[in-house]
Nucleic acid binder design. Sequence first.
RNA 1: CGGGGAGUGGCGCAGUCUGGUAGCGCAUCUGGUUUGGGACCAGAGGGUCGCAGGUUCAAAUCCUGCCACCCCGACCA
Length: 580
Amino acid sequence: MRWSESYLFTLKDKPADAEIPSHQLMVRGGYIRKLAPGIFTYGPFFLRALKKFEHIIREELGKKGGVEILMPMVHPKEIWEETGRWKEMGAGLLKFKNRNDQEFCLGATHEEAVTDYVRGDVKSYRDLPFNLFQIQTKFRDEIRPRFGLMRGREFVMKDAYSFDVDKAGALKAYEKMYSAYEAIFQRLGVDFRIVKADSGNIGGDQSQEFHILAQSGEDELLVCENSDFAANVEVCPAVSEPVESSDSENPLEKFETPHLKTIDQLAKALKVPSQELVKTLFFNKAEPDSEVFEPVCVLTRGSDEANPIKLKNLWGLSNPPRLLSDKEVFEVSGAHPGSCGPVGLKMPVWMDHSLKGRKNMVVGANEDGYHYRNANLGRDFKVAEFADLRMAKEGDLSPDGKGTLKSFRGIEVGHIFYLGTKYSEKMKAQFLDESGNLQPIQMGCYGIGVTRSLQAAIEQSHDADGIIWPPSVAPFDLHVCLLDPDSPESLQLVDSIEKSLHAQGASIFVDDRQERPGVKFKDADLLGFPLRLNIGARSLANGEVELVDRATKEISKIKIAEAPQEISAAVQKKKGTHVH
RNA sequence: CGGGGAGUGGCGCAGUCUGGUAGCGCAUCUGGUUUGGGACCAGAGGGUCGCAGGUUCAAAUCCUGCCACCCCGACCA
């Protein structure tokens, strides 16, 4: 491929609307252009990377028996109503009507579509198991798209769905996908972690996320320093050191705390660490979209945060519960936030494990400007349940007991779920088992954010000059800076190198523009293909060309006569090398 | 939806406070000199200053309304 024959426009300045390096570099390199927020055109070079990654995905899923299909992007309302998600997904589904006033949405995910596809065909346990996947454009009407392809409205996703006769089979399918995903991200060549995760409103009871580690990641991961335990902070079990209980319960004592609104202010005033104070929060335990008001009090240590995802799961809600407004807090407790506590409350009180056994607590008095000292469980207030309610954090003990947790930022690029029969029951996707009983199919679903993965790879692999593509998905293997594009000797050399590379299935991009060398070098660094070859009068006069490694900037001189073979070998070596 | 920022040639920005000829850098085109890390000189083209009202002799600039964008938060398979 020659620059002069391609469609490629690079930018010197970083675009004003791009914040993180990967987004800036992709726009600067002409890889993507924004059409609307979260909606992008993929240029010819990004498309090449995309196809390469898709190829890796197809190969690895194929090895595990995945069968590729392609489902519609436009879905009728009816299938989404069958599962209740027409409402549940809310505004995230882009809905519209046709000329006959029939309602549709754009496919945000395809559990409904694939279950409908399968239920018409599968009749017997003999028809199972199988695993279907597709690579397709998804549309989700994100509230706030950001960071280019990281959180787009329109994006390419690989989604797969497994169908089995029983749970054991479904879990086997889950394990297969787990290992396929491991292989896929290893081949992509990124530093990634697999973590326990919340299953969100997809449903199901087992779920893990694949994260590419990067500072700009939207998710916080907690990883054990000594073992392979890793979890999304949202669901990471919190282990707290047991409380050493002082033996006697002192008398309850009210004291003035004027103008002390936060735990930190209170801690400072009382000269005790915030961990020794008690934080009182109020949530509405009812389903977020219902009219019902069911206030619940949640107690944690002053240094901890309540975890809404854990509350959601504990209370069996479909979405995280809502924190009460200041006004509502006043109505249910008699005080504003900052002066609330469990004493005298007329609602269930949930207490975090970390407070179990603690005596003589400092809590709000439910009267503005007052707190209690020496509040004790049993004597002064009652607790409905003890549970793990808090956000785990760096420095906590790992749940597997093998060390302490360290915090990383990650970009979620893959997610696997064991679904069970949530969709098959609602949509009547059934089969007859060996004894002639009608059974719902056991399902799993598995996603990879294809476009997101590629940007995440760039986010992880770039420098001040530009992108450093992992060789597995680099748009081209070799970037030739043809410094004298009119020199017959140079052109002849490029031809022979091109032939040699094509013979082994490698790709070559030639910058044949009438530009000065500096311009070509800058663009080569920006575009970020793994190897660059400089061909110019200066080195040709010495009977040499220069091969430059994009990642290390190492230069090797190669004799012209040996150039085609040596460069082919270098390209081959690069492709075989994995960064991590 | 809440908070913040910013809408000015293709890109990046100044000008707005204090109303008075629409500017700079990059890119583009022409000619010339250059040619191994974003060259230089000379010339040229390109903007209804987001949109609509209003104030004024006069509006990019002041007022009102709307639209769209970016960031933080809420939300998120």
